[in-house]
Simulated assay, not measured.
Amino acid sequence: MTLEIVKIKEELRNLIDDYAYLGDEKKISEVMDLFTPDLSYNVYMNGNLVSNVSGRENMEKDFNAHASQVKTYFTLNGQHTVKINGDAATGISFSQIKMIREVEGKDVLTDYSVKYDDQYLYLNGKWLIKERIAYFIILESRSIS
């Protein structure tokens, strides 16, 4: 493995971690800067497609609408494997996401176990996410005090 490959892998891991950090802080406009303008973002829950968004403007609207319903986000990233091909790459990463929402006056914690399939592009001196498919594999909700 060359030093250049190691550097690219670190940049791609930082991209994934930045997505989590900024999302947890609800810095949605900054999250959008991590994607190509023509992005595609699909979400599957229990094997069913529940969201299909393309373009930064549409995704920013969706993310802001979602964030407005969430009191707290907490994301923990796990393994991240990439394959690099010049200025393009693919990656698989895993995350544990916790969200707290208020439902009927009670705080409800939902835990999500998520697998992301990504396509990345190197544009204007930085790596960006071009396509993200999120597979919400395990979902658990419970009231908390």
Rank of each mutant, 00 (worst) to 15 (best):
K98F: 12
Y19C: 07
T110N: 07
P37V: 05
Q79T: 13
S93Q: 02
L121C: 04
Y19N: 12
S113P: 00
V108N: 03
Q96A: 10
I144K: 08
R132C: 10
K115A: 10
N52L: 01
G23E: 00
Y21T: 12
I97V: 15
M1W: 09
L123H: 03
E11Y: 00
F74C: 13
I16E: 07
A89T: 05
E104V: 02
S54Q: 14
D117Q: 08
E25P: 00
D17P: 02
G47Q: 09
S143D: 11
I97N: 02
E4S: 14
N48H: 10
G78W: 00
D24C: 10
G125V: 08
I144L: 07
S40W: 02
Y19D: 06
E60L: 11
Y73G: 01
K26P: 07
E4H: 10
S54A: 10
M45H: 01
P37C: 09
Q96V: 04
V50T: 15
L15E: 07
H80D: 02
E60P: 02
Y135W: 04
F136Q: 01
A88H: 12
Y73D: 05
T110P: 07
P37Y: 10
G55P: 04
N48R: 14
R132V: 09
E10F: 08
L39H: 03
L15R: 06
L76E: 09
L139H: 01
L15G: 08
K106L: 06
T90V: 11
E11N: 13
I84P: 05
D111F: 10
S29Y: 07
K115I: 11
V114I: 15
L3G: 11
H66D: 06
V50W: 04
D117F: 02
N42H: 11
K27I: 04
V6C: 06
R132S: 07
K106H: 12
E10R: 14
L15K: 09
D117R: 03
I144Y: 05
Y122V: 03
L76F: 05
D117V: 11
D38M: 04
V31H: 04
K115G: 01
S54L: 01
A67G: 04
A88G: 03
D118G: 03
V70T: 12
Y135H: 14
M1V: 12
D107L: 08
N14K: 13
S51H: 06
R13V: 03
Q69S: 15
Y122L: 12
K83V: 13
A20P: 02
S51C: 02
N124S: 14
V53N: 10
D87T: 11
G91T: 05
V31T: 11
V31S: 06
V70I: 15
D111C: 08
R13L: 14
I129M: 14
I28A: 08
K7R: 14
I8P: 00
V53W: 00
I138G: 02
I8N: 14
M59G: 09
N42C: 09
I97Y: 01
K83D: 13
E25V: 00
A89C: 08
N58K: 12
I133K: 13
G23W: 02
V103W: 00
I144V: 15
E102P: 01
D24K: 10
S145V: 11
E102G: 01
M1Y: 07
Y135F: 12
Y122M: 05
K9I: 01
T72N: 12
D24L: 10
R142F: 08
Y73W: 15
W127A: 09
Y116A: 09
V50S: 07
K7P: 00
I97C: 12
N48G: 01
E25D: 15
